[in-house]
Amino acid sequence: MHVRHLITAGLLWVVLTAVGELLVIADLYPAVGSHEAEDFDNIFRFLLLLGVPVMTFVFAVLIYAMLQFRIRTEVPTEDGPVIRGYGWGPRIWLGITGGLAVFIMIYPGLTGLAKLQSDKNAYGWGERDAEIVIKATAFKWQWAFEYPDGTQVSVAQGKELVLPVDTSIRFDVNSIDVVHSLWIPAFRMKIDAMPGRTTFMTVKPTKTGEYGNDQAYRVQCAELCGMDHATMMFPIRVVEADEFESWLASLNQGGK
């Protein structure tokens, strides 16, 4: 009797999980433009893989109980069995959930963190030493970028942020007024622009692409910074290294 319930509910759980896990193979993500993006997608999928069964377990029990254990009479005529729930049940549950929690805490949690943080006292993501360092300055409500050679890019000049593919690029971010946040959906990377301190994040684009074809290629302000926060966006174009050089050059004689 009881066993039958367990088995059918278990089957329901399996079915729901099977359906739910479709999310893992589903393509939920914006364009993949960098190593960091690949890592994110994998970790996200992995967490889905583990998280969906937890959810579907709860769903399965609830749905099955609703269908099977409901009383059909107008008012309850008898009470359920006296199951106090001490002894092994809760301990097993504690073991499983605790194990699961500790597991995801270590992988992908702490391991992923270790991969992201090169220096325990720094304020930012990734390696400090990069092939190109771009200074990003946030202000209400736009961005100004400065390349190593001093070239400035902003809505006034350039109108797009051009990056070389397969090169590690470090953004040194700060703000001159309020808190902003530098976010590039295609790279899955984000760091706040804090007035009074310089934060950084290092990304390595792996694919060429541009805002024109894919809106994930943009610098988006991701911290509410007042009226025009929503429009504080700047297009990105990722190109081959040589094209990047020529673009930089063209911008340089193009006035300054």
């Binding site: 029990v61 609830l62 254990f69 409901r70 009383i71 309850p76 069995p81």
Partner: peptide
């Protein structure tokens, strides 16, 4: 938080649910 779920699901299980 999981223990809260344990309590809820365990109570429902085999109960006489008055919906």
């Amino acid at each position: 938080t999981g223990l809260i779920f344990l309590a809820a699901l365990g109570t429902i299980w085999m109960g006489k649910l008055w919906l």
